[in-house]
Design a binder for these strands. Sequence first.
DNA 1: AGGTATCCG
DNA 2: CGCTCGGATACCT
Length: 590
Amino acid sequence: MQWDRGQKRDEDRIIIHFDYDAFYASVVENENPALKSVPLAIQQKQIVVTCNYEARRRGLRKLQLITEAKRVCPEAVIVLGEDLTRFRNASKDLCSFLRERMWSGRLERLGFDEVWLDCTDMIEFNHALLNKNDLERSFFCTDKDDPTCGFEYDARTVFGPTYPQYAASEGVLNEDDRRLQLRLLLGSHFARYLRHELESQKGYTATVGIATNKTLSKLVGNVNKPKNQTTLMPPLVDNNGKEGTIHQFMDAHDIGKVPGIGFKLAQKIRAHVLGRDADHEEGLVYGGTREHVTVRDVRLHATIGPDKLEEILSGPGSQKGIGGRIWDLLNGYDETEVSKVKRVPSQISQEDSYMKYLHTFEQVRQQLFLLAERLIRRMHLDTMEDDEEAGSDSTTTRRWLAHPRTLRLTTRPRPPLNADGTRVRSFNRISHSAPMPNFVFSLTEAPSVLADKLVDSTLTPMFRKLHPERNGWNLSLVNIAATNMAETAADSKDSEGRDIGRMFRRQEDVLKDFKVVESEDTAPLEGIDEIDAQLGLAEKSTMQGSDNVDDEGDWLDEEQAEVGQVYDCRTCGQRMPLFAADAHIRFHTT
DNA sequence: AGGTATCCG
DNA sequence: CGCTCGGATACCT
């Protein structure tokens, strides 16, 4: 029975959720510590995207107009933060820092400033280590291979605030709950340790939640902000007619505050709980009309259950099983795993928004160029790594971990302001995609040169397709994205990754003599058409070679044959069968 | 695969 | 609610 979903739980995990306090502002403060004591706001276009707590004390808010912010707090220091590079780098750095302290690779980022950690294994280990006769002087081991590495703590009490504020005394808990309470207690001390490490070594404070799943850990952290932590304590579930802490905690939330219930879903649920006529009688002023719908209102609603939610929420485009998933969330039930950190993002994009519209095509072209150049630089930073075994020679070799196979151009036409009230069919953004041309993966040409080519060869035609009108566009946003990442070698997701990586590296050993050395006498590549034509030729020779291999059979050894005989050109990114590689390399070097 | 919607920060 | 500048995932064709 679906209603029981919420009562039958896995309580085996210990999940910690980190939310760095006022992240963008903290990054700027760490670059310039003098700013720590003054009200500081980060500006993007005409908006304060975030501000430090000193600024909040003086009335500044997230997503406030700059004009209003200056009026409320003229003395605030305002720093432009449209270029996200420093924030992205800081986010990655903190992520690595935390990951180094984790035994499982389970660390998941959400945005730039939130991270989930699955600490179950570390808690399990240290739970087993406890001496129940001397809890006061316990030692939390943070390194599996070094028992002296870690910190002392008092395992008689939870560290920091809890929800509910006063935890149940042990006597009222059953055996399972006592065990869970102890494990959460260990989690609270580990969270304190990590927060302390983060602050002392990296200069960042965070708001932290400790619970048994992702949703609960994220929400419970908010109970004490900033620079603090909160642990959700047992008894978690209802028992003997007594309400568990999960329902107690979740019930008070507005439905829209539950992660996973966004604007659209919340609207649909509210409409149903408040009555269908609420929409209809919008014109009437109802003094007593209730605006907020809480989790409790929905959960205890006479007719609402997972099936009813499915009915309410399903429609064109809605996910299958949405009703059951939302019902689970309302019950604080969330089995989604903390995913392992990915080495390569699945998408990279660059965008800019424009207050005044782009008049001429030259202006559009200029913007496309700027975005393309930034995108190509990002592709280098985010999807390449230094080759480990470049050792012998002094040239540093870089290799692509993944190639984006698709290029997407997105624009947002500004809704025309019509005096006569005629309405524009509005979907906010429109986009067009095309295959990513291979030349952008060149390591020998400058990003600016490649960006220029990309604009001429691909982005301009894409823009023409998106906006067939010759001129007169009124765009408020342009975005270009590299998507559809195809991994070239090792992959981090499963244990196979390393093996595959090793096998590919063996192929590279075979090809070592043909490795392209970046040099001045590399012939300048002249035009896309010419490159495409030559790559076309390379493909043809591949086909012929393929026949030969099939005929000869023993051209390659078996191990290589198993891998699939793929070679990724480090210069242009072209993927080809291994036997075509040396001809291809000659194409680049002659 | 391309295009759109809905989530998240 | 959208403003920002990203990002992930799912559905639809």
